[in-house]
Design a binder for these strands. Structure first.
Lengths: 196, 196
DNA sequence: ACCTTGACCTAACGTTCGTTAGGGCTCATG
DNA sequence: CATGAGCCCTAACGAACGTTAGGTCAAGGT
């Protein structure tokens, strides 16, 4: 069970922000402490290690993505790949726009995890990507999607989705809903059969 | 003029590989030297600073992308946005697959440049992205592309392209040509008007 | 009145960082 | 044979790193 005091939560949020902005390796414990107006050593009353901090953030983000896919799958029929993929994309965008910093760290900083955590995460990430891959495979099989390399198509869409936290700003011109709508539209369009 | 001895070139290549694999901040001068079977301090006979190393790699990558777009634009008519965009995507994929490590560093590690170099690069990157943006704008205007938010569409495609060096392996299942073909197909399809 | 708990402090540890200074070896060219 | 360029060495610098140890102080429960 993960214990989470309010103070620890605040520390995680500050760490997310700095890891997102400068990267994990370029962010020191003392950098994080400075934002909290605290001495670096004091952080160790709340945190086991720097990597523990990273893992907490990454694990929370991974869980959010997993919950989103689970819901998307529960809400759409197996035999409608178009709707299924739309729900998956929408769910992904919602998670990313709700927590851009966490998501960014999850996507970009996993290399700096310990080997144990890294392999744990790789498994979960593969499972996540499989949800997209399965929907696309099925769509190609049933003819709903054009026949192209499903592996490339999956990667194409997933990398486009993963790019969002790098540019999305919650207070920017684009609302989360608009981004979601457009990304669903673009993703489905990219795969859809021509209707000439 | 940039002077480039063969030895310096070898150093740049090693640095590209490590920066790509572990990130700039997590790669030390001594790490780079170790691959070359050399003492860390010896690198300073060839390199002014660690940032100089990063900038050389990034600058070379940026130039490669600029040359690719220039060629794509020269080879396609202004009034055919579909062909223009196809050429831009193809050129981008060719650069990325020819130099995945350099490209990866260019895309992911620009935050660690000095402010001078970072703003220099930001300008060039904006100019590069504008080439895509202009083709998409024109395509939406002429009706060749479906009417969606051109800013989002541009970002969607560019982030998908930028994701390539993270997964592409020169000795893998997919040849550079195949990736290029598929990415052109997916990009154009994502934007194309329905023909129902 | 005492004790725990949470939050933070200062001081210090051993290590690694980027970088500089100064010297030495090899080898092609004059 | 002398020269000089190219390449690398050892030694060391001050700074920053993650982390540990031990202590203070206020709030709250018993």
């Amino acid at each position: 069970m993960i214990e989470t005091t309010p103070r620890r939560r605040a520390i995680d949020d500050v760490a997310s922000g700095l890891f997102h902005a400068n990267g994990y390796a370029a962010t020191s414990i003392r950098d994080i402490a400075k934002v909290l107006d605290i001495q670096g050593a004091s952080l160790y009353a709340h945190v086991a290690s720097k990597e523990d901090l990273l893992w907490t953030i990454v694990d929370r983000a991974a869980t959010a993505f997993e919950e989103a896919t689970a819901q998307a799958i529960a809400e759409t029929p197996d035999n409608d790949p178009t709707e299924r993929l739309a729900a998956l994309v929408e769910g992904h965008v919602e998670v990313v726009t709700a927590h851009p910093e966490r998501s960014s760290v999850f996507i970009s900083e996993w290399r700096h995890l310990s080997e144990t955590h890294r392999t744990d995460l790789a498994i979960r990430r593969d499972a996540y990507e499989s949800r997209f891959r399965e929907a696309i495979d099925r769509g190609v099989d049933t003819g709903a999607f054009q026949a192209l390399d499903p592996a490339i198509a999956t990667t194409f869409i997933l990398t486009a989705l993963n790019g969002i936290p790098a540019w999305y700003r919650p207070d920017g011109r684009l609302t989360a809903d608009r981004v979601s709508d457009q990304y669903v539209e673009l993703s489905l369009h990219a795969l859809s059969e021509d209707h000439r």
